[in-house]
């Protein structure tokens, strides 16, 4: 089934609960608005506080568990990416982030960002490290996380990448940007 198909099924599943949703809507709206304000106060342009927490947890679970500061910078870069990309699909990416954050609740576990590191890894391993079924679509998040994590100059240099301007000695006989 397509991603939009899954969204449609999710909407249909929620239909029987619509009276409940009507009652809960103001609370959800207030919570979303509060999360948005908190994130904006911290300089985020697209993400809200819930998404920021979820993505930081994703970085720790999917890439590197012991680098809090770098996780925060990665999330800021993901926010920058979402802000710069001129796309009608941005809302879908945000919906995927919230889906990952709340998916563990379906099996009566805490939200993804509230799980312990080992629980998160187990969840990612069991659910997201696949390309098949609904969780295959959620694994698109993996790309966003890697994009944020490896986009900084520091991350590039940490893997041994040498920027063009610093390649002087190792450029062998390649043309120089200055000479040509």
């Amino acid at each position: 089934m397509s991603l939009n198909g899954y969204l449609a099924v999710a909407a249909l599943c929620l239909l029987p609960f619509s009276p409940l949703l009507v009652v809960a809507a103001p609370c959800i709206w207030w919570q979303r608005r509060r999360a948005r304000e908190l994130a904006q106060r911290d300089g985020y342009l697209q993400l809200d506080a819930t998404m920021v927490r979820c993505l930081e947890a994703c970085v720790e679970a999917m890439v590197r568990p012991d680098e809090g500061e770098r996780a925060e910078r990665a999330v800021r870069d993901m926010d920058r990416y979402l802000h710069l990309s001129f796309s009608s699909r941005t809302w879908r990416t945000k919906a995927l982030i919230l889906a990952v954050e709340h998916a563990p609740r379906l099996s009566f576990k805490p939200a993804f960002s509230a799980m312990s590191r080992d629980e998160r890894r187990a969840f990612v391993d069991a659910r997201l490290s696949t390309t098949k079924g609904i969780y295959g679509t959620l694994s698109l998040l993996r790309q966003l996380v890697r994009l944020g994590y490896y986009s900084s100059d520091e991350a590039a240099q940490s893997v041994g990448f040498v920027p063009l301007g610093e390649r002087g000695a190792q450029r062998r006989n390649k043309p120089s940007p200055v000479l040509v």
């Binding site: 089934m1 397509s2 991603l3 939009n4 198909g5 870069d77 920058r80 990416y81 979402l82 802000h83 710069l84 990309s85 001129f86 796309s87 009608s88 699909r89 941005t90 990416t93 295959g136 679509t137 698109l140 790309q143 994009l147 944020g148 986009s151």
Partner: peptide
């Protein structure tokens, strides 16, 4: 990151319906 977000359609995230 900035170039992919700016110069690619849908920030490089254009997929088929099955994603």
């Amino acid at each position: 990151l900035a170039m992919i977000a700016t110069l690619y359609r849908d920030g490089g995230a254009q997929t088929n319906t099955d994603a």
